[in-house]
Design a protein around this nucleic acid. Sequence first.
DNA 1: TCAAAAGTGTTCGCTATACACCCATGG
DNA 2: CCATGGGTGTATAGCGAACACTTTTGA
Lengths: 232, 232
Amino acid sequence: MFKEKGQFTYPYPRPSVTTDCVIFGYDGKDLKVLLVERGIEPFKGMWALPGGFLQMDETAIQGAKRELLEETGLKDAYIEQFHTFSAVNRDPRGRVITIAHLALVKISEVKGGDDAARAGWFNLDKVPQLAFDHDMILREAEKALREKIHFEPVGFELLPEVFTMPQLQNLYESILGVRFDRRNFSSKMLHLGILEATGDRPAGTSSRIPILYRFNKDRYDIFKSKGFRLEF
Amino acid sequence: MFKEKGQFTYPYPRPSVTTDCVIFGYDGKDLKVLLVERGIEPFKGMWALPGGFLQMDETAIQGAKRELLEETGLKDAYIEQFHTFSAVNRDPRGRVITIAHLALVKISEVKGGDDAARAGWFNLDKVPQLAFDHDMILREAEKALREKIHFEPVGFELLPEVFTMPQLQNLYESILGVRFDRRNFSSKMLHLGILEATGDRPAGTSSRIPILYRFNKDRYDIFKSKGFRLEF
DNA sequence: TCAAAAGTGTTCGCTATACACCCATGG
DNA sequence: CCATGGGTGTATAGCGAACACTTTTGA
């Protein structure tokens, strides 16, 4: 490496800017977060959120999507910025601010990342100590997700195309940390009119075989444009 | 100015980072935003949001508070980060990302800024075209404020220490763009138990002289810690 | 055959909403 | 004296919360 140091000069000092991604997934039972093991210093060998330096020709969301693609192979997952972290000493390499993003993916669609780095899904209550201030970023992301799901149907981003009512309920309970009554949850969801049964209801009227549903985004958009607010 | 150019050198290019402040105030009738007239290029002479470059030894919120102090003389107003804007060409000087903040101030406590720059309060429907992408930032700030006030009693940050019920209602209506029934608004607010009458209810039982209230933050914190959610 | 999982409907209480009248003041 | 602004209470409807029973399958 003979790349010259000091190629880029400015009249005033500038911080580095990175994007980080908190990628949530749901395995049918627990809410999980995708972490990568750092291959280089600082914090080599520790687990961290996927992230990297912002390129000069990309926006923050583009940078975050690039990270997401590298780690999961996914191009079109739900992703949004939720907070920018700027503590002066959050990175031992110097002044680095990070624009943190929240991504929701269908875990079954995730392929192993391009990166050689080891990556893994962690239960939220089994996350090891993380590099940098990523513990705090993760906690803030959980909070942002909880607030988000109260009013927007983002839960469906975490589920397969078709899913059962108990799965959906379990997901909501995992994220919000509360328990709902089965009957109330079900009827509330169904009365919203944003779910459609797949119709595949074979043989026997009912039993232990749950009904499969699909989220209908068109109906949700209509619902929302009428001024109704989803609330859970 | 003989300050050398190129004093600060890095192996990779870095964006500049600024903080901007959307400062809202309420004059008893309309919701207003504080703008400053730019004294230098680019966009010299245009109105813009107060803001400036992030210093290397301050966090984003500290930078935003510094801007707020410079423009209003206020140290302790409500302020929070709401979004980071990173479009590649948002600033003609080069790559500049800005961490945008939302501040709520009591307009009566605002002193003219230190800066020589002209500053002024604008009705939200009479804002001129702004410099950079500040039109968009302002629109996003309005949205963030609306979403915030739905569930947090931030409205009180905009009102004087004591205020009347009609004032409070008018503020909510201004921000949310809806009309409430006087009786319902009043009883909902009072039943929340987060307001206290100042007790200064002179002479005649009642009349055109409105009752003065004060926001009781302690009661609100108790209310919230019990898991209740404010909603408007 | 028994436990576990899934489906379904009713009642009750609270809260949001709609709505009308009285009083005092200032013009 | 009348228009305006402010205070207060009641009736209804809809929604959230609590709750029990039946069916089927797998152990």
